[in-house]
């Protein structure tokens, strides 16, 4: 295994956002079938250590490519575009207002113990996120507009986080 190769190369796949996930799954499993520590229980110390490193690396690469937001971020990083997730949180005002409205709705549903409303919010947001990924696919794979793509990814960071919060709220209601 070439630890320096990028994650797409590791799985011998084209560098693209639109990825055949079932193809990725089967390639990932093929690699794990070769390198997983369970294959080296009988091997010497050095081979076992190498196996752990390789399996760890394959897991990391797989996870990065599997999740669309991570995959997009990684693609941008490969093309030299840092999304500055931590250092730059400036967003357009209209987006931030929209976010606040979402959050208020979530908080209200949560405090009211409104399970149904939370699920509704979850589904609405999920649909919104999915259509944004469609758009991101266009920007990254078709037009190659990395600057716009960076902006979309930064928005999606907020939205995914929000979705996570809705799920947490659902979880806390169930418990």
């Amino acid at each position: 295994m070439d630890f320096k190769a990028d994650h797409f190369a590791l799985f011998s796949m084209n560098r693209a956002f639109r990825l055949d996930l079932s193809d990725l799954d089967s390639r990932y499993r093929d690699i794990q079938a070769q390198v997983h520590p369970d294959r080296f229980v009988n091997a010497g110390e050095a081979a076992r250590r190498l196996s752990m490193q390789q399996a760890t690396h394959a897991n990391e690469a797989y996870l990065t490519l599997k999740k669309p937001l991570k995959r997009a971020t990684y693609l941008l990083q490969l093309s030299g575009h840092d999304i500055q997730a931590e250092s730059n949180t400036a967003m357009p005002a209209e987006f931030l207002i929209e976010q606040m409205e979402w959050r208020e709705a979530v908080m209200e549903a949560r405090q009211g113990g409104d399970h149904h409303e939370l699920e509704h919010l979850h589904n609405r947001l999920r649909a919104d996120i999915n259509s944004r990924y469609e758009e991101l696919g266009e920007l990254l794979d078709a037009s190659g507009d990395f600057v716009s793509a960076t902006d979309r990814v930064r928005r999606l960071l907020f939205l995914e986080k929000l979705l996570h919060e809705i799920d947490d709220a659902l979880a806390s209601l169930e418990e």
Binding site: R29, A33, H36, D38
Partner: peptide
């Protein structure tokens, strides 16, 4: 049995 290598061709699987 699989881990110590007592396997016969088809009895092979991977656990993740």
């Amino acid at each position: 049995n699989l881990l110590v290598g007592n396997k016969t061709g088809k009895d092979d699987w991977l656990l993740l």
